[in-house]
């Protein structure tokens, strides 16, 4: 009896020993930078990167350097870094998906030095248009406003997602785009409307940017959408835009917004009442 228990104890010891020392064969060790902040990050990074018997990741939160050890016949650095990025952490090879990053805990929202800002299409098209003077003038007129409309749509999408932080950031984009409009390049029709709505557009967006409380942002968004509607009516775009209405918002008085998609995604209620509403006008 005694002997049996001794043997089994020895066996258990043996097993536990081998399991905590899960050997990686054909090892290769490298040191790479992974962006992050705290101990919580460390845990996420190491769990995401490590695979039993294939790869092991050890990250240092002070130096931001990770020591990765892996079986070079079974995996490679890219695969490990990709898994870590998919868990929310940038490296010099991969950028984490934005939605995963934004779900990280507050203390883990590290500074994303490797991310390049999304450039608005207008700037690019300006470059490519330099050699065709005739086209430049007319194109730019459309594009200046197009940039603003695009930033409006991004703002609207963030409202649909009920993400107050994102809405505030995007409102700053809209404001920047409004400020950079060169009025002399607008068509006369556009110019007239622009003069009417410009100051309220500015104050609307400033208000939205100033808060992260989604309810407050939505109230201002009503006004903003009305002004954008007026502007859009006189400015020709190369795709259809849908003017949509939610009959319930604003104490049952209803509220409108603009969308590039015919399918209704309600920015006033988000997931609470996502498809409430209908298209009232299609602007071509």
């Amino acid at each position: 009896m005694n002997l049996i228990s001794k043997i089994s104890a020895a066996t258990i010891l043996l097993f536990s020993f081998s399991s905590c020392n899960a050997q990686i064969k054909n090892t290769k060790t490298e040191s790479v930078k992974i962006y992050g902040n705290c101990e919580m990050c460390e845990k996420t990074i190491e769990t995401a990167g490590s695979v039993k018997k294939i790869a092991n990741v050890d990250w240092n939160k002070d130096t931001k350097m990770a020591t990765i050890t892996y079986d070079s016949t079974k995996t490679n650095q890219d695969e490990i870094l990709k898994r870590i990025a998919l868990a929310g952490y940038d490296s010099d090879k991969f950028l984490a998906p934005d939605d995963v990053y934004s779900k990280l805990a507050g203390c883990c929202q590290y500074e994303r030095v490797n991310k390049t800002a999304i450039v608005s299409t207008a700037v690019i098209e300006d470059h490519s248009m330099h050699n065709q003077e005739n086209v430049v003038e007319t194109k730019q007129e459309v594009n200046q406003l197009k940039t603003i409309f695009e930033s409006y749509f991004a703002l609207k999408d963030a409202l649909v997602k009920s993400d107050g932080k994102l809405v505030s950031t995007l409102a700053k984009d809209v404001l920047a785009n409004i400020n950079s409009v060169k009025m002399e390049k607008l068509s006369s029709e556009e110019h007239t409307v622009w003069m009417k709505v410009m100051s309220s557009l500015k104050s609307n967006t400033e208000k939205i940017a100033a808060t992260t409380i989604i309810e407050k942002q939505r109230v201002v968004f009503m006004d903003l959408s009305a002004n954008f509607y007026a502007l859009l009516k006189v400015s020709k775009q190369d795709y259809s835009i849908y003017y949509q209405n939610c009959p319930m918002y604003n104490d049952g008085k209803g509220a409108n917004w603009l969308s590039k998609e015919n399918a209704v995604k309600n920015p006033y209620y988000g997931s609470q009442m996502l498809t409430c509403g209908k298209t009232v006008e299609t602007i071509k």
Binding site: K82, L86, L95, P97, V100, T116
Partner: peptide, 9 residues
């Protein structure tokens, strides 16, 4: 060209 921006799986 450049650093790889992933799409969430």
């Amino acid at each position: 060209n450049g650093i790889k921006q992933l799409k969430s799986s």
